[in-house]
Design a protein around this nucleic acid. Structure first.
Length: 536
RNA sequence: GGGCCCGUAGCGCAGUCUGGUCAGCGCACCGGCCUUUUAAGCCGGGAGUCGCGGGUUCGAAUCCCGCCGGGCCCGCCA
């Protein structure tokens, strides 16, 4: 059974209605590593529903936390200077670097939120800042303050340094300087918590002393307490989270105790997951490096970036094909081709009811289902391989011609409208991929003028090109015929076929190799090719 | 101090929960074919003491214990 279904089954043993939560701190661009969170939550939601339960998935923006580090790309040059003063300020109160966005939070989260629909994710979105503003946290905050001693004891069990005697589970925003991280709270009465703006290692305080009304958005619960409070508020029964929280003595463990004793709520069913790392080639050393995605360091690959080169189903597949706790590595370079192939293979296995290796048929089917953005297609879609699309998109004059080539090759047999639309999208994505991520050797451009290297061609080579030009002028060749014809011509003029191929590439793209000649030439304007060959 | 993940063919991995046709998949490689394949074919093939040691069992990649190697996280804040 797929792990998503195992979770769903375990949940249904506990009850029929479920709220599956996910959420992230808006500490920079939201990348595909963060998607584990929402995608898993949504997958479990789906599985619970399919098993007859009721479920709702939510996504929570932790936009009220203080900025601890200036995230990329704001940490460079002048911007870094500008944003320095916001260290320690809640994200939601920091301006956007771009006037198109409402604020810092909007700048970093909107591209993500707006993409969710494309990935078929159905979640209710919450904002921590708005929840505090609405006063919904007031009661829970009061309960936490009343149970301060108990909470401190729970946290101290896992701390090297115990919390101070006058510690409170509440962080106030300084009325004078607007910072949240710099204040220290000491006491509280009625609806107010007294604080002093003392400063932290990364943000200086202003020395102001005052009171924050915890029924308003003048401060917030500290993270380890806020999390269980949120479980209570939203009735969370299940939540995926990064493995850092899952560690013994980590925030899940303390949250569980706090939820039970302070808020009288059972901790959600935990679904810890591993990080996603991004594989890239180091520009200087040429070494392949794996780096954990990090929004603050700018090691990111965002949802819009994903959509520019890969279908949304592929990301769902990426997440659901392996267990949550298995580390995942994404490489947008050459391995993307294999990844596309794998997805196509899984789809084929689904429709032909076969298994792949030791993946049980049932497992393959489930993974395929979970990978779908919409419902599973009624019949197997026809796919143009991405590998081929990556060549075709560089050869074709325009998209229509590209589609014509695909049809004439019978890569799509009697294609439906959807098949064609799909092929077109793949072509466009392949185009972006070639432009932004493909290794250099897969890229080529038609040489605008005859490359100078061709001056040194031998008589035999010239003769071969001349024959090719003449023959092309005489009749039409199918790609295969044309390819075969090159062998014939090579024989006629007495050079090795590979040599003639090489020369053809040299004349057209100024390189020694390229896409298969038959397709390549067939996709180009015939008059142009003839003219170019005769120029030699 | 504590916790997690990984270690299976050259490479990437599945299979471990629920022990017994589980020794597999993809890529790479090798061979053959279409009179010919430099980047869209097809068919076939080789390859692994399943990290090491011990235990449980009729039987272990799979369960238990220990160890080694690699990666990561918590013990600040979130």
């Amino acid at each position: 059974m797929h792990w998503v279904d195992q979770v769903a089954k375990a949940l249904l043993k506990r009850g029929k209605k479920h709220v599956i939560a996910s959420g992230i701190s808006i500490s920079g661009h939201i990348h595909i590593g963060h998607c584990n969170d929402v995608f898993i939550a949504d997958g479990i939601r789906l599985a619970v529903e399919q098993l007859g339960g009721e479920a709702k998935a939510v996504w929570y923006a932790d936009d009220f936390d203080p900025m601890r580090r200036i995230p990329w790309p704001l940490n460079e040059g002048e911007l870094a200077e500008q944003y320095k003063k916001y260290l320690g300020t809640p994200y939601v109160n920091i301006p956007s670097p771009d006037p198109k966005y409402k604020n810092f939070v909007d700048f970093f989260s909107r591209p993500f939120i707006d993409s969710l629909e494309d990935f078929g994710i159905q979640v209710k979105i919450y904002s921590a800042a708005e929840i505090y503003k609405s006063g919904k946290m007031a009661e829970l905050t009061r309960a936490a303050l009343e149970h301060t001693d108990e909470i401190r004891a729970i946290l101290n069990k896992y701390r090297a340094k115990p919390l101070p005697e006058d510690w409170l589970p509440y962080d106030a925003i300084c009325k004078k300087c607007g910072k949240l991280a710099t204040t220290t709270t000491h006491s509280w009465h009625d609806n107010y918590v007294r604080y002093k703006c003392e400063g932290r290692d990364y943000a200086a305080g202003c020395g102001y002393e005052g009171e924050a009304d915890y029924t308003k958005d003048e401060g917030k619960l500290t993270w380890r307490v806020e999390w269980p409070a949120r479980w209570k508020l939203l009735g969370v029964t299940c939540e995926p989270f990064g493995k850092d929280h899952a560690v013994a003595g980590g925030s899940y463990e303390t949250g569980k105790a706090i939820a039970k004793r302070v808020f009288n709520h059972d901790a959600p069913y935990p679904v810890p997951y591993e990080w996603v790392s991004l594989k890239s080639v180091d520009e200087e050393t040429g070494q392949v490096v794996h780096r954990r995605m990090s929004s603050s360091r700018g090691v990111v690959f965002t949802l819009p970036q994903w959509l520019s080169i890969a279908e949304p189903e592929l990301l769902r597949y990426f997440i659901f094909r392996s267990k949550a706790m298995k580390s995942k590595e994404f490489d947008p370079g050459l391995p993307l081709l294999d990844f596309y192939d794998e997805c196509d293979l899984v789809e084929n296995a689904y429709f032909t009811k076969t298994s792949i290796g030791d993946w049980k048929e049932e497992q393959v089917e489930r993974i395929y289902e979970l990978s779908q953005v919409k419902e599973v297609p009624k019949q197997q879609p026809q796919r143009v391989s991405f590998r081929f699309a990556a060549v075709l998109c560089q050869v074709a004059q325009n998209w229509n011609q590209a589609i014509d080539i695909i049809k004439s090759r019978e890569m799509l047999k009697d294609p439906s409208k959807a098949d064609i639309e799909f092929a077109l999208q793949r072509l466009k994505r392949a185009f972006n991929w070639v432009k932004d991520y493909a290794p250099e050797h897969l890229r080529f451009r038609i040489a605008e003028v005859l490359p100078p290297e061709t001056k040194s061609l031998t008589t035999k080579q010239r003769k071969g090109l001349e024959i090719l030009a003449d023959d092309l002028a005489k009749r039409d060749y199918s790609p295969v015929e044309l390819h075969n014809h090159v062998y014939k011509i090579a024989g006629e003029v007495g050079i090795k076929p590979s040599n003639l191929f090489e020369v053809i590439y040299q004349v057209l793209i100024g390189r020694k190799s390229g896409p298969r000649v038959g397709n390549f030439i067939a996709a180009l304007d015939k008059e142009f090719v003839i003219k170019r060959l005769r120029e030699v």
